[in-house]
Design a protein around this nucleic acid. Structure first.
Length: 558
RNA sequence: GCACCCAUAGUUUAAUGGAUAGAGCAUAGGUCUUCGGAACCUAUUGUGAGGGUUCGAAUCCUUCUGGGUGCGCCA
């Protein structure tokens, strides 16, 4: 039962016809002001009365309170509604525990959401700059699936461009033995260094790239090898993070889909010649022109993304087409979406750029593959796992599966670090901070979950539950929190913001730990014990299910 | 130069236009008769500056300051 909605309906039934209360009723921030409240200020004009008098009026008319409402108060123009705590506890716990240990996804709504995330470049290291797109996209993927959408995870591989010509050139010049990710990075860095002195290297690189395009077997086989090595390497990281994709269609996939798009743009009279290049002018929309063809006739980034969006609409018939890409690409996506609109595609408005902030390393300046200034994600995770092992050895030396648990915790610390704040904020990466497991962190959530498990391993609820045992402030705060889980997941999806869920889980864990400190769960008071065990189980299941949506694993012991 | 984004405590940050701006870290104390101390409690400090809209602004509009990003043949 949706208590907020029911309350709004009830208040509405007490509302004079000339006023409209829709949207005014909301959850109270402070429990002292009731469970839900309605500020009456906006009603003053329509009702020709002071907010205080209006709130008083509502209260005096509410003489037939439904059973779930305990009382109503009128305070300074607010109408505050206090729920019957026992009734809410019963409803919330019965519903939550009915969902089982791991909440099942909601029934399919038949709508498809394409999510473009991670999108690694071939032959480039998976560094911490890729963490945001990977985990934000990966989390949104799980969130939309949970909400009943058909989510399609797409890793739009960076597998096309002159840099591969450079790499092949370098490989033939200086490469030794079987290439590895590390040696490929070295070759790439070396190429840029040497090319500063020797211009002819760039010509050679262009030549090799052209060979790839022309389907030259030598060039292609080397390129395929690079691709294979890269996918194997990043695949390891994806496995550790629990990230999945349904498609690896990257840039090269669209090679044969570009010409028809250019043709279409021409037919729709959108293309204009400018300084030798073909562009779609966008000045009347306050943007620089969108470049479609270079003066040599070659296609560009935007051309590819147009073809890509059109392909995805045809192939997936998406309801939304999301691009989890750093905010540097803001203008680019605005241009591409506008061109799609000008082409007459109504679904252009379903394409959404989901931007996130830049990652830099403290004291180290910007991350750049060319300079070789990279912090590999795998190294950061390894360090976090290493530190977790030390903590386990110190605190829980007898733990079984210590290595696996350490992996779960270490990865969780890194992942949560990337999902805990608003995605638009820039991040200055600090290893010290990533390795701090106290307070609002992934390990804190995991610890709280393990704590619940530990209690439930000692005792389980059974028989009839007296929900009247859960009406104290600490217990009831948990009930209120559990009650808003689904709304929170929906909000996270609507705003493409996993951190909303991260925040919720931190609040839930904090409230549980307060409850735990303040109330003996396992005790001689069988009635209280039974109810509190039930609450503990509901918290545990909710934590676990929520954590899964932000890519955190929830070991039972740690 | 133009466009977009960001600005909350020493620091990292939260707050559908609503009531006394809420947490984490750090710092200083404390819980230590532990159902898991990776926890809990107490203390200190905050909305960059000005104007406007509103009954009410961290939130909306505007000017300014500071920072970031982007702006034709890279992706």
């Amino acid at each position: 039962m949706d208590f907020l909605q029911e309350t709004e309906k009830y208040i509405g039934s007490k509302c004079p016809p000339e006023a409209d209360i829709s949207g005014l009723v909301g959850y109270s921030q402070d429990i002292k002001n009731g469970d839900v409240c309605m500020p009456c200020f906006k009603l003053a004009k329509a009702l020709h009365a002071s907010p205080v008098a209006i709130a008083d009026g509502f209260k005096s008319r509410m003489t037939d309170l439904p059973s779930f409402i305990l009382k109503a108060e009128s305070v300074n123009g607010y109408l505050n509604i206090f729920f019957d705590r026992e009734a809410l506890s019963r409803s919330v716990l019965e519903f939550t525990l009915g969902r089982g240990e791991k909440f099942a996804p909601m029934p399919s709504n038949g709508e498809t959401i394409c999510i473009d995330y991670s999108s690694v470049n071939i032959a480039k290291p998976f560094h911490i700059g890729h963490l945001s797109t990977t985990v934000i996209g990966g989390s949104l993927y799980r969130i939309f699936k949970f909400l009943g959408y058909n989510a399609v995870g797409i890793n739009h591989l960076g597998d096309y461009g002159t840099q591969f010509g450079k790499l092949i050139t370098a490989y033939f010049k200086w490469g030794e033995g079987e290439p590895t990710m590390d040696s490929l990075l070295e070759l790439y860095v070396r190429f840029h260094k040497e090319a500063e002195k020797d211009e002819s290297l760039n010509d050679e690189a262009r030549m090799w790239f052209k060979k790839i395009e022309d389907g030259d077997s030598v060039a292609l086989s080397i390129f395929e090898k690079f691709k294979e090595i890269t996918l194997k390497e990043v695949g390891k990281v994806y496995d550790r993070l629990g990230i999945k994709f349904d498609s690896y269609d990257g840039e090269s996939f669209y090679n044969d889909k570009l010409a028809p798009v250019v043709e279409e743009l021409k037919q729709k009279n959108l293309l204009v010649k400018s300084d030798g290049a073909m562009v779609v002018p966008l000045d009347e929309y306050g943007m620089p022109p969108c470049l479609i063809l270079k003066s040599d006739g070659a296609s560009l980034y935007a051309t590819r993304d147009l073809a890509c969006a059109i392909y995805r609409k045809k192939h997936y018939d998406f309801k939304k087409n999301l691009y989890v890409v750093a905010y540097q690409q803001n203008l680019h996506f605005n241009q591409v979406f506008k061109v799609l609109e000008l082409m007459g595609y109504k679904w252009a408005s379903d394409c959404v750029h989901v931007p996130f902030g830049m990652v830099s390393i403290e004291g180290a300046g910007s991350l750049s593959t060319r300079s070789g200034n990279v912090v590999k994600l795998a190294d950061v995770i390894d360090k976090a796992v290493e530190k977790t092992k030390e903590i386990i050895a110190e605190k829980n030396p007898d733990l079984k599966d210590a290595d696996k648990t350490a992996e779960d915790i270490g990865v969780g610390a890194v992942v949560f670090g990337a999902l805990s704040g608003s995605r638009i904020k820039d991040i200055v990466f600090s290893l010290d901070k990533a390795l701090n497991f106290d307070g609002e962190t992934g390990p804190y959530l995991q610890y709280t979950h393990a704590r619940c498990c530990s209690i439930l391993a000692k005792a389980r609820a059974s028989g009839k539950v007296n929900y009247g045992e859960l009406v104290d402030d600490e217990s009831f705060a948990l009930i209120r929190r559990l009650n808003t889980f689904d709304d929170t997941v929906k909000a996270a999806a609507e705003r493409y913001e996993p951190s909303i869920l991260s925040r919720y889980l931190i609040d839930l864990a904090q409230e549980f730990n307060k409850f735990y400190i303040g109330h003996r769960i396992i005790s001689d008071d069988l009635s209280a014990m039974n109810a509190r065990l039930m609450l503990t189980e509901a918290v545990k299941n909710t934590l676990r299910s929520g954590m899964e949506l932000i890519l955190l694993r929830a070991p039972e012991k740690m």
